[in-house]
Computed example of a mutant assay.
Amino acid sequence: MSIKFLLTCSLLGLLSVAQADLKFGFYVKSCPKAENIVFQYVREHIPHAPSLAAALLRMHFHDCFVRGCDASVLLNSTSKIPAEKTSPPNLSLRGFDFIDKIKSLIEEECPGVVSCADIISLVARDSVLVIGGPFWNVPTGRRDGLISNATEALNNIPAPTFNFTALTKSFASKGLDVTDLFLLSGAHTIGVSHCSSFSNRLYNFTGKGDQDPALDPFYAANLKKNKCKVPNDNTTIVEMDPGNFKTFDLGYYKLLLKRRGLFQSDAALTTDAATKSSIIKLVSSPLEVFFKEFAMSMEKMGRIEVLTGSSGEIRKNCAVVNS
C-alpha cells in the first residue's frame, strides 16, 4: 500500500469529519432561540426591502467561494491585508449591516456561541424563503475564519466574463459540478446588475466597438436605449429578470433560451449542449422541480471547506477577528 494512497485516505477522512460536524440543530442546547431570532428578523424586514434577498444570497455565494463558508467576506481590512470586501467582485455587495444587526441580537441572547458564518447561511436561506422562494436545509456548526484577502476573492469568485470552461473549472475547484453550476446560476432570477458588469457586450465586445453576437440584438438595443445609455455607466442598475426580479421563478432560464442573459457567464450556460438541454427540461417542468434541485445545490454549496470543531473562532463582531 503506497504512502500516497494512505495520505489520500487520511485527507478524505479529515474532510468527512469536518462535514460531519455540521448538523441540524447544532445550537439546540447552546443557543436554542438562535435560528428563530434569524428568521423573525428576516421575516420582519425583508418584505420591506425584497431586493436585499438577492444581495444576501450573493453574499453567501461570495463567502463560500473564498476560503469556504467562513464569513471571511465580512471581515474588515487590516493594516497589512486588504480584505475580501475591498476586492472588485465584492465592491457591490451589500447587507453587511443586516448581518451585523442579527449578530448583535444573537449575542444578547447567547454571547460567543453562534458564528457569523452560520448567520450568513441562515439569512440567505430565510431571505429567499420569505420572498416566496425555495426552502433548503442549513446544517449548522460552522466557525469563523481568521483571514480575509482581497486577492483571494479576485482569484476565486467566478467572473461575469467567464466562458463555460472557466465556469466549470471554478465550480469544480469547490466540489461543485455542472448541475450545481446551472442550478445555482438560477439565483439570478432575483438579481440585479450594474451596467458596468456587462456593458462590454453592448459596446466593445472584442475591442473593436462591436456587440456580442451571442446577445439578442433586440434586447441589446433596448438596453442601450433605456438602461445602459453610455459605455462607462457605473451607476445604472438592470434587473436580470426584467419585470419579475422580485419573484423566485424560472424567468431567468427562459431569458437564457432567448439569448437575453446579461452576463457572458449567463450566456455561456447555453453553449454546452448537455447543459442547455437540462435548462430546457427544467423550464418545461413544474416550478417545484427547480425549487427542489436548487435547494440541494444550495445545501451542498453551504458545506464548502467549512471550519468546524476547534478550527477558526466564534467572532464577537463579524467585521473583526477576536483580540
Rank of each mutant, 00 (worst) to 15 (best):
F5K: 15
K276H: 05
A83G: 11
H194A: 10
I81K: 01
A159Q: 15
H194T: 13
F291H: 11
K292I: 09
Y203R: 01
I147M: 05
S104P: 04
C228A: 02
G309W: 11
A221Y: 09
G261F: 05
A221K: 07
N317Y: 12
N200R: 05
S127E: 11
S51I: 08
D233C: 10
I81R: 02
T165L: 11
G209A: 04
N90Y: 05
S173V: 09
I190V: 15
K174V: 12
R94P: 09
T189D: 09
P88N: 02
K246D: 12
P217E: 06
I131M: 08
F135S: 14
S72A: 05
S87E: 06
E239R: 00
T270S: 07
F218G: 14
I46Q: 02
A214K: 06
K300S: 06
A54E: 12
S193Y: 10
L307G: 03
S10G: 13
L93N: 12
E299L: 07
G243K: 02
L15R: 01
D63N: 01
Q211P: 12
A187I: 14
S311D: 13
S278M: 12
S92P: 06
M1Y: 08
R94S: 14
V178M: 03
R315W: 02
T308D: 10
M240L: 06
M1T: 11
A71R: 01
N76L: 09
F294H: 05
P160T: 03
P32R: 00
S115I: 07
K208A: 13
S79Q: 10
A187V: 13
Y252D: 13
D97M: 10
N232P: 07
P286Q: 04
G68H: 04
S92A: 08
N90V: 05
T247W: 10
H188N: 15
N149R: 01
